[in-house]
Amino acid sequence: MSSIRANDAVTVWRRLVHGYTLMIGLCWAVTVLIVAIVSVSTALAGDVTESLWLNTGSTQPRYFLVAIGVMLVTLHLPVYVAHGVTRRLFMLAGAGFALAVSAAFAAATTIGFSLERAIFKWQGILDQLSHPYPVNTLGDGLRVTLSLALLGLVYLSAGGLIGSIYYRYGAWIGTLLIPAAALPVFIAEAGTGHRYLGEWLAQEIGLTGLSYQVGILVSLGSAAVVLAAMYSINRAVPLRPKKL
């Protein structure tokens, strides 16, 4: 096998970033708009007792990451391979893209926390919350960003794995294996204590006391397992026949 050329991988990575910039921007614009509407409504009713960004802004965009992951394999992989890119090179560039997008999502989430905290402080409700605000210091911000970036990576990779199974093995097997492909997401959420399902799962099985470091390792392990499974399925995946 030939070696992968770094500039080829960078070209593919750039094309992926270029192709998703507008879509990701729209995703965040919609998220911010929804949170703003919910926040204003809640504030007018005088019911602000916890971070609204925690419940909506920090969770819903993760499902968009799943969608990106699915499209990465089902939509982009065949087109890139047909344009003279090996599966290996595409997956390398795709992994880099997944890392960048997950990090960007995590950073955007943390920025959202910072803005909401500033607004809460300005409105004098920061000390009236039922739970302490989740991000109060720069250190908190960095810890949350890292944790969310890894969680986002697991989400996106799980989407990629679901898409890979569908593309290679068809709709029946793909549907049957969704729970297995999504399991690492629950494990990573449970390990890091993030909402929603993971938080619930962690409480149910008594994993609430895990340290931050262990949570990070659990997320890393989950991402590694999913990415390895994706690579295994796609490294020799045949392109489906194309007809008009």
Binding site: M1, S2, S3, A82, G84, V85, R88, L89, P241, L244
Partner: peptide
């Protein structure tokens, strides 16, 4: 999976 070869190869199928 040979990048040196596939970048020099172009197959155009009916559906594109």
């Amino acid at each position: 999976e040979n990048q040196d070869v596939v970048r020099m190869t172009c197959l155009i199928r009916e559906g594109g």
